[in-house]
Amino acid sequence: MLTITVNGQEIPWEEGMTIRNILNKMNYSFRMLVIKVNDKVVKKEDWDSFQVPPGADVKVIHLISGG
């Protein structure tokens, strides 16, 4: 079975899987996120179209206001 890793957790890879699919699957509901796939940023506008390859290392980073 092909898999991807999301914040260190291994999950099954699916054909055509997008960032949005992954966020829904993982129940990540944080308002503001930065996503990196294999250490490259995927911008928010591409979350519905970017297809995550099998074996990918996906990092979901939660951003919180305050500065």
Binding site: M32, L33, V41, G66
Partner: peptide
């Protein structure tokens, strides 16, 4: 301050200069 501004900066900076360090706060 704002999380949406942080996201804008980090996304665009990492796209433009992926090899340069960026240190954020959250």
């Amino acid at each position: 301050d704002d999380a949406d501004q942080k996201q804008m900066l980090i996304e665009n900076w990492q796209e433009l200069y992926p090899e340069k360090y960026i240190i954020g706060a959250s």
